[in-house]
Computed example of a mutant assay.
Amino acid sequence: MTPLLTLENVTRKFGDLMAVDSVGFSVPKGSIYSVIGPNGAGKTTLFNLISALFPTTSGTIDFDGHPIHRAKTHHLAGYGIGRTFQNLAIFSHATVVENLLVGLHHKLSATPVSAAFFWGPARREEIKARQQVEKIIDFLEIEHLRDIPVGLLSYGLQKRVELGRALAIGPKLLLLDEMVSGMNSEETEDIARFVLDIREELGITIVMVEHDMGIVMDISDRVAVLNHGSLIAEGTPAEISSNTAVIHAYLGQD
């Protein structure tokens, strides 16, 4: 399958600390790809490199023909990359609709004058944006929550709103960082279903950093395993679950 995201010899050092060491893999278009590993393995650092939160020390990251290892973070939405965060990054006092509209901000092009008077292009853009938001609200089954401040929702529903905001970007690639962390089993099952639907119905490629091995093994097409910043295994869930190096890394054996 054609790769959408390719990492080659990606390395990131912080002083003398080697956080990510020569990691390379490709994510096929239309796949669900998971990155796993013990605590401190370098997963979040790798995600932050893909998200252009900081540059690589060496190596390259290519997304859909764009080299992004030196890109500015605010350019990624325009390329078609959306992301959720391990720690919630929402506007708690804003409503569900208002939070989702933030994801469409990079698509708005009305001038300050037309926006101030809300006519012409500004009005048309607002109508289109709200139509897109309504589609996402319907997709994520949160119609009854649309006008409620997000801070009043349960943790699982807040994570769903954050997922909706990432979808509002209109991504080709969706990065999910510990999406089900802190959720109960019912909330986790809901997210797993939505992730599958996002791939099947919306055609969006998904890369997950995840600790929940149940969801990883159930819905991933391929899995990459990091340990101490290095890639120690890559393959299908079945191949990973029987890999000796992976078993040793998780059990803490030499």
Rank of each mutant, 00 (worst) to 15 (best):
R130H: 13
E141Y: 13
I240R: 04
M18V: 13
A110F: 00
K159A: 05
S230E: 09
G65P: 07
V225W: 02
R70E: 07
I81T: 12
H93N: 15
D177H: 14
I247S: 11
A89Y: 02
S185Q: 10
D64Y: 09
K13C: 08
E201Q: 15
H75F: 01
G15F: 10
E189T: 13
I148D: 08
M208D: 07
T244A: 06
N87E: 10
N87M: 06
V223T: 03
V133C: 05
G30H: 10
S92R: 13
L231N: 10
D221M: 09
T6D: 05
I232H: 06
P237Q: 07
H93S: 15
E201F: 08
K172F: 02
A116N: 10
L108P: 04
H228P: 00
A129V: 11
V180G: 15
S242M: 02
G229N: 09
I219S: 06
T188D: 06
I232C: 03
A245R: 12
P149W: 01
G65L: 04
N99F: 03
A249S: 12
I68G: 07
F47Y: 06
T188V: 11
R222T: 12
A116G: 12
T95A: 13
H211R: 08
Q132Y: 04
L167I: 04
N227K: 01
Y79W: 14
I36E: 14
G80C: 09
A115I: 00
G151K: 11
I204K: 08
T44L: 03
G65A: 02
I137M: 13
G182H: 15
P149E: 03
I61C: 01
S109C: 13
A77P: 13
V161E: 03
D138H: 15
D147V: 10
I191R: 08
L5T: 14
S241Q: 14
S154W: 03
S181L: 12
T84L: 13
P3C: 07
D218F: 01
G24H: 06
L153M: 05
M183N: 09
L100Q: 08
E186P: 02
S230D: 01
E134V: 07
V27P: 05
R146L: 06
G164E: 04
I68D: 10
A115G: 02
A94G: 12
H105Q: 00
S34G: 05
Q86N: 10
L196R: 11
N227I: 01
F117Q: 12
G151H: 09
L163T: 03
